[in-house]
Design a protein around this nucleic acid. Sequence first.
DNA 1: TTGGGCTGAGAGAGCGCTCTCTCAGAAGGG
DNA 2: CCCTTCTGAGAGAGCGCTCTCTCAGCCCAA
Lengths: 331, 331
Amino acid sequence: MRRPTLEAVAARAGVSRATASRVVNGQATVAPHIRDAVLRAIDELGYVPNSAARSLVTQRTDSIALVVSEPPTRVFSEDPLFSTVIRSASVELEAVNKQVVLMLASSPMSHARVERYIAGGHVDGVMLISMHGADPLPSALSRLRVPVVSYGRPAVPVDIPYVDNDNVGGAELAVRHLVSTGRRRIATIAGPQDMIGGQDRLTGYRTVLRDSDRRSIVAVGDFTRESGAVAMRQLLGDDPSLDAVFVANDLMAVGALQSLRLAGRRVPDDVAVVGFDDIEAAKYTEPPLTTIRHPVVEQATAMVRLLLGLFEGGPADPVILPTELVIRDSA
Amino acid sequence: MRRPTLEAVAARAGVSRATASRVVNGQATVAPHIRDAVLRAIDELGYVPNSAARSLVTQRTDSIALVVSEPPTRVFSEDPLFSTVIRSASVELEAVNKQVVLMLASSPMSHARVERYIAGGHVDGVMLISMHGADPLPSALSRLRVPVVSYGRPAVPVDIPYVDNDNVGGAELAVRHLVSTGRRRIATIAGPQDMIGGQDRLTGYRTVLRDSDRRSIVAVGDFTRESGAVAMRQLLGDDPSLDAVFVANDLMAVGALQSLRLAGRRVPDDVAVVGFDDIEAAKYTEPPLTTIRHPVVEQATAMVRLLLGLFEGGPADPVILPTELVIRDSA
DNA sequence: TTGGGCTGAGAGAGCGCTCTCTCAGAAGGG
DNA sequence: CCCTTCTGAGAGAGCGCTCTCTCAGCCCAA
């Protein structure tokens, strides 16, 4: 009733276990007719190698931990990027026959759990998706002797290779677009400043405003729709004459559009709005949202390749992917 | 340089490997002072059990496959329910120290891969998230000698316990609400008929209409926003005098609202709209969407409990969770 | 005092696999 | 024709752990 072992395959094929193993692992030093006999036996018995036994001796597990370290705001969990990243990374890893072990690290308790698990050598490598700056996980994992890559630049300077999009450049693109279309009073709704994306996108905004001799008008949100609505109301109160706003992500931009509508401002006539991320919903806002697209899928696959490269002693250099301005109707 | 083994712990504590193992596994038959010595040794050496070795002998892996069998339309991947289900299930499984192995089964090739993997005994159980009817995976997996539970009733009759929400009842709730508010010509935008959700929600609609002596007006979408918009236009063409529409999911309802707006119909004055799912976006449509809420998180955790119960020889009865009408402004 | 029952701890087998070492036999060179 | 080289295949150790079996030592009743 038990699953067949290599021993059984060997017996059936009339060879030794070692030879059967060689066939299973595709070594060339097996005579064709013997290989065929073994393959037939494998097929007949429905043999599947026992991975526990295999990794016990090889010291490899062929599985990769995908650690999602979620910020307290939970914005990430509702973020469509979340599933896209996980999906893309999974597809890529499955293509090279690596298992994906999904781990959530939201509480300190689960942090400890993840650390213990990784330290336990259950996985060959770690892909870390961590978004908020105070996260102790990047530095904790970098101390372990396990290859780790990060989706997004870690907020604390730590020696982990990462893949990120050009947040600063993207924000510059957005604001420069507003400048070039003649907007004078360009505000921003920034993201949380303990997240890299929040920081960098604000930096990009500031850089362009400084260079174009405009005053910066800043409100801060937390990447949720509501916070975008609140921040927009606040900006309108602070400076009723503003004629453009760069919002650090699309979710907040949706909220901002709502507040603008409620305040009776026409978009883009009175106020131009540019978002960031190009989420699906950006196409369906009223008016459709001009935004910055960054290549989520590419970022995920680049992360996988970076990690796989690490296994073979490849370079540990960060990868920065370009962003792109998508012009719709809001600006 | 290698990770410490149980042998090392035993040596340091001055006991046998067997005793060290007893302590690690929390057996009571160890004298307190010896237990302490072992625990100290574990701590000092930073010992973590090797799971490969352990599962080699216990024949357990303590990991669960979360198989996402995606319909070709890819609607699921953009569905916010996707991440909610995965997240909830993960949290629940991690609480009982089970690993989550995420597997995507989108192509026939990856189907084979998943089957091979499951057959290989790499996991103790399978949670199957499969949405479209033609999926061969449920029946394939049910043949394997591995506990399997399904998120949502499998479309083909197959002997897998599942957790689902009451799609029929939910649809009835929605349509009955429209009837009770005096709507006369109630149309529906149904979901794909090769998905259980699509079928059942249409059934619920038909049941109530029949009982209340109204004619059914049906258009079919594929659960995407666009298809909802298209279907709505079609319905308006078919029966310009319709005064209500039950849409089988919120995504399509968003599209329908758009088409209604474009056609100059006021919601809910001219046409009442009820959706299904209560996704986040339903709160922010214009007007906010009346819809049917089903407990996604509860469904996911119930699925986990069902699977864990199976391990202990628990019942394999399907679990059906109730739905709830959420009244906003669209109906 | 002696024997039986019980408790706590060790010895050792074995889970299924890989991989080194060894060796038989064929091929090739002097 | 013999010795060396090479190739293909087997023997066997051992990865780190669990768990059964065994047994030493203790307590208590007879």
